Simulated scan of single mutants.
Amino acid sequence: MTDSWVLRRVKRVSGEEIDIVIENGLIAEITEPGKGRATREYDGTGTYVSSGWIDMHVHAFPEFHPYGDEIDEIGVRQGVTTIVDAGSCGSDRIADLIRSGEQAKTNVLAFLNISRIGLLRIDELSQMAWIDRERAKHAIAKFGDSIVGLKARISRSVVGESGIEPLRVARELSEETGLPLMVHIGSGPPDIREVIPLLARKDIITHYLNGKANNLFDAEGRPLQVLTDAVARGVHLDVGHGTASFSFRVAEAAKCHGIAPDTISTDIYRGNRLNGPVYSMDNVLSKFLLLGYSLEEIIGMVTVNAAAWLGKPELGRIRADDTANLTLFTLADGPVMLTDSEGEQRTANQIIQAKGVVANGEFIECEIRA
């Protein structure tokens, strides 16, 4: 028996209004508004549709504290159909994360923490003995369909006396496995000028808009040479908002100098989901609307750009015969107060609000937030 329904009069970010017919979990047809035929209907008048949002930096392993949360709470309930766990687990627990993902409605991919213990501790790179290359390579061989890269958190509280050495090992492991690095940047030492030159094309700098002293912009807001050099050689810039890693001031300087994010991600986990300043993907996206990025640019950063980096272009498009992974959202009028990671507040006159997703063909309403 065919299970079919139509998303009626939804619109792309370009403003084009369409009907999308979904049959047995696949996009069966994309047609003019009012022309789609199905047994069930969703009235999408006034609602935007995009391919399913992708969050490139989350923490979705609830057993680890403080950086953990339930997969679907930070996935489909947020309007996000695919999450990429950013190194919660190393080789010790990556199998558990992947098994949990198989039970979730949200698609789950992962960066493997180069420390075998992952975020069991928040100084996971302070002991070089916790970096076990052979166990990491074994995990990659076993779970290669789910592991998209390696994660190294290179900031003072994580590496301790190990300094820059964990990143040197991560670089070697990247070259041995062919997997790119996602590198967390934060307080020094190591100095940011030591860190960034070790990154290569397709590696990711996450938290690149943080407002800490050891950041990528000088006192006048100009990008450091190491940053412009990295962009020129194809290093990918990711937001990774988090509790302490997004500054309106730095983001404004970056935009002024044309250093736009490749991807917008949340670095969400239970604490900053419930208590802020992250709350949700749409809250983070709204901050970029406030900064003056266009809706098309913003949605592209969590769809097409993220899907391209992952090597899964099908996740960033809406096309007949593809699995239906879609996000439905609206633009709502403010005023709404938005807060960055430094406690600075800005008033938004318009915000993005996720309404629901179609995840692997199933319609799921988003969490209702005040």
Rank of each mutant, 00 (worst) to 15 (best):
G292E: 09
G316L: 11
L315E: 04
V284D: 00
A320D: 02
L310H: 05
A320G: 08
L315T: 02
N283A: 05
A307T: 08
L289I: 07
K287D: 08
T303K: 07
G300W: 03
L315Y: 13
G316R: 11
F288W: 13
T323A: 15
L291D: 02
L285N: 04
K287Q: 13
T303W: 10
I318N: 09
I318C: 09
V304Y: 12
I298P: 06
V284S: 00
W309G: 05
D321Y: 03
E297P: 00
Y293E: 05
M301I: 01
V284E: 00
G316S: 11
G292D: 10
G316T: 08
L285P: 02
R317T: 15
I298L: 10
E314V: 00
F288L: 13
D282I: 13
I298N: 06
V302H: 14
L290P: 01
L290G: 01
L310C: 07
R317Y: 00
G300E: 03
V304G: 03
I298V: 13
L285Y: 09
E314P: 00
Y293A: 06
A308E: 14
A308P: 00
N305P: 02
L310V: 12
N305Y: 02
A308K: 15
R319H: 13
F288I: 12
R319Y: 10
T323W: 09
V304T: 15
E296D: 14
L295C: 13
N305M: 05
R319T: 11
